[in-house]
Simulated assay, not measured.
Amino acid sequence: MKTRDLFADVPEQRRRLMAKVRPTDSKPEMLVRRAAHGLGFRYRLHVRTLPGKPDLVFPRLRKVVFVHGCFWHRHPGCTRTTTPKAHAEYWQQKFDDNVRRDEVSQSRLEALGWTVLVIWECDTKDQAGLVSRLNEFLSESQ
């Protein structure tokens, strides 16, 4: 069964809203990119040859940053980690798959010698804290 058929009874407004969700260049990701650039660090974006296609890759430092949305990647304890009531089983499976894929990607990166930082969408609300956390992560030696 196609996803479109599964959600045939979902209101058009929600369908349009969900269609706007994009995997790259999100507002939280752009905030992290600006912060890293402002600190003087240069990076590559969404390197497809690395597991999980990290959002920011610092090749010289062997470090990567993932910017995860709290809703999609299930930030533990976050108020944005809600589950839609319609088609709850479908959504739960989708969220479980996302979390499992994230864990596998991070493990594979670490096995390849990369250091991983996950920044949650809600962490980007505190810009000073974000800058401090990024600076600490990127400045520390392996």
Rank of each mutant, 00 (worst) to 15 (best):
residue 60 R to N: 10
residue 86 A to D: 13
residue 3 T to C: 10
residue 61 L to R: 15
residue 110 E to R: 15
residue 12 E to L: 02
residue 64 V to L: 11
residue 38 G to Y: 15
residue 10 V to D: 08
residue 117 L to Q: 14
residue 74 R to W: 00
residue 93 Q to T: 03
residue 82 T to A: 09
residue 88 A to N: 07
residue 88 A to S: 14
residue 32 V to Q: 06
residue 22 R to L: 01
residue 65 V to K: 07
residue 109 L to D: 01
residue 1 M to P: 00
residue 54 P to Y: 05
residue 83 T to A: 01
residue 15 R to I: 15
residue 117 L to E: 12
residue 126 D to T: 06
residue 126 D to F: 01
residue 115 T to C: 00
residue 57 V to Q: 03
residue 26 S to H: 07
residue 84 P to L: 04
residue 16 R to K: 14
residue 74 R to T: 06
residue 48 R to V: 00
residue 65 V to A: 10
residue 142 Q to T: 07
residue 27 K to T: 05
residue 30 M to I: 15
residue 80 R to I: 00
residue 131 V to T: 11
residue 31 L to I: 10
residue 116 V to Y: 08
residue 52 G to L: 03
residue 39 L to G: 13
residue 31 L to A: 13
residue 57 V to G: 04
residue 86 A to W: 13
residue 101 R to T: 12
residue 91 W to M: 03
residue 102 D to V: 15
residue 61 L to N: 03
residue 77 G to A: 15
residue 27 K to G: 01
residue 99 V to N: 11
residue 58 F to Y: 09
residue 133 R to W: 08
residue 44 R to I: 12
residue 45 L to K: 09
residue 50 L to H: 09
residue 12 E to S: 10
residue 5 D to V: 01
residue 130 L to E: 00
residue 61 L to Q: 06
residue 29 E to Q: 13
residue 90 Y to D: 10
residue 80 R to Q: 14
residue 33 R to M: 05
residue 35 A to P: 07
residue 140 E to A: 05
residue 24 T to C: 04
residue 41 F to M: 06
residue 119 I to E: 00
residue 63 K to S: 08
residue 11 P to H: 07
residue 131 V to G: 01
residue 93 Q to P: 01
residue 129 G to K: 08
residue 34 R to I: 00
residue 59 P to W: 00
residue 100 R to K: 15
residue 14 R to A: 12
residue 135 N to I: 06
residue 19 A to H: 11
residue 114 W to Q: 04
residue 93 Q to G: 03
residue 114 W to V: 06
residue 31 L to W: 06
residue 30 M to E: 09
residue 128 A to N: 13
residue 97 D to K: 15
residue 72 W to R: 05
residue 141 S to I: 05
residue 75 H to F: 02
residue 75 H to R: 02
residue 75 H to K: 01
residue 99 V to A: 12
residue 31 L to P: 00
residue 112 L to D: 13
residue 24 T to H: 06
residue 78 C to W: 03
residue 138 L to T: 01
residue 2 K to M: 02
residue 121 E to D: 11
residue 72 W to Y: 01
residue 83 T to E: 03
residue 5 D to Y: 06
residue 117 L to F: 09
residue 16 R to E: 14
residue 84 P to I: 02
residue 115 T to L: 07
residue 56 L to P: 04
residue 75 H to M: 02
residue 73 H to Y: 04
residue 117 L to N: 07
residue 67 V to I: 14
residue 132 S to Q: 10
residue 39 L to V: 13
residue 127 Q to P: 00
residue 112 L to Y: 03
residue 20 K to A: 07
residue 106 Q to D: 11
residue 124 T to E: 06
residue 37 H to T: 12
residue 28 P to Y: 11
residue 69 G to E: 05
residue 99 V to S: 10
residue 64 V to A: 13
residue 89 E to Y: 04
residue 46 H to L: 08
residue 2 K to I: 01
residue 39 L to T: 12
residue 46 H to A: 10
residue 29 E to C: 10
residue 24 T to R: 14
residue 44 R to G: 10
residue 94 K to F: 11
residue 64 V to E: 11
residue 23 P to Y: 13
residue 8 A to C: 02
residue 9 D to R: 09
residue 17 L to A: 14
residue 134 L to W: 04
residue 78 C to G: 04
